[in-house]
Design a protein around this nucleic acid. Sequence first.
DNA 1: TGTGACTTAAAAGTCAGACTTATCTTCGGG
DNA 2: CCCGAAGATAAGTCTGACTTTTAAGTCACA
Lengths: 233, 233
Amino acid sequence: MTAQVRGLHARVLESLGPAITGGEYPPGSVLRMDELSKEFEVSRSVMREAVRVLESMHLVESRRRVGVTVLPTQEWNVYDPQVIRWRLAGADRPRQLRSLTVLRSAVEPTAAGLAATNATAEQCAALTECAIGMVANSRGHQLEGYLRHDVEFHRTILRASGNEMFARLGDVVAEVLAGRTHHQVMFEDPDPAAVTLHVKVAEAVRERDAARAEELTREITLGALEELDVLAP
Amino acid sequence: MTAQVRGLHARVLESLGPAITGGEYPPGSVLRMDELSKEFEVSRSVMREAVRVLESMHLVESRRRVGVTVLPTQEWNVYDPQVIRWRLAGADRPRQLRSLTVLRSAVEPTAAGLAATNATAEQCAALTECAIGMVANSRGHQLEGYLRHDVEFHRTILRASGNEMFARLGDVVAEVLAGRTHHQVMFEDPDPAAVTLHVKVAEAVRERDAARAEELTREITLGALEELDVLAP
DNA sequence: TGTGACTTAAAAGTCAGACTTATCTTCGGG
DNA sequence: CCCGAAGATAAGTCTGACTTTTAAGTCACA
């Protein structure tokens, strides 16, 4: 699922990163390089590589004669996929899920509108196929199959928008959708209304109806927000 | 303006990063660690730290027995503020500016709507003050003063939305606005209609009129898009 | 007592060299 | 023609010595 970790420093990161985003080392905490390298049983060179990466994420700041200081939350590069993953895996997962869903509700309708004018024939076909897949998996508790098509649907919309900033949010949306399926109580089959909306969006994009694609997608994301309000108020 | 570079590796990054995002080393290019450290006249340990950071931005991938490979553009972490700065400073600045402006047009209206319900009294006051500052600097070629208030206005909206993902886009918006003022031909004073819209947004937020704040902000960002279409078609 | 210059020490930063490990390539045998 | 072993290559790791920055403490002088 996650990219295979290459190198020692990556393994250190996978442990230290979540510890920081998870509040185990709250902002203002000061760590020391040699203590860290002792703790993780790696050489100083490996440790500095890990710290450099954390520094590039604005999670920490390293200063001479002081040490490695954890920065306040508002400094963090919250769009970094790795940071998002760490935070989604941690304690403030609900808050994070809400932030990201609000972001979706702002971005996806606009992206869908653009997709309606920019999507290639292949992308239109892919959308339709995804929508069909969603319908086919919408009954009888086939959650995994449904999720797979749902993710691919939204990824395709974002990519088809032709805007690279939107396209790059595909992974974020995938995380959010997966989170909803796996970590929230989801006894029932997906909302039939939502499934229908996806079918209609695929239709609107195929017919180059930007306004309709945008509006329908807005309904989808608003639905996701309401769902969140119900499940985690 | 930019954060002061601390350390040798950061100086290497400031040179190597733009070279990669600028296409000097196109995707697929393979660099070698020891050649790089020779070229930049730093030790290998410093060089690896720099490469680790580039790797965390998904600009390159380092593999044993192969070298450091530049990744295709769609892999890049385009939300990383440093990457954004490098790209804005490079050759594909126009394309980048357009992507970011489209992103703004998706995010800011939603953010303004949220700000109308969430802004504190201080934030409302700050908005009004910014709007007044914009009016005061809107005539007589006081572009710098205008820009300062404009940036602060949008920053405040994004922060007041209460959503950290939106708040984090403050720097991006600042870059875009600064880019418009500094790098595009801007002989004339700002569009009076735009100035008025800002005043009205401040008003709408103060009066907790979310729908109006959203719609007015949509007009502002659509104006920015049209401006871009005119200046760089 | 307060202030400013000087000293000290603590921590990160840098470098160089030796060694390890993964993996791509090549070559030889079946 | 395919497969497996051997070799070569470049990154990865570790260690120790040294440098640089800078926070904090100290002391003299006003």
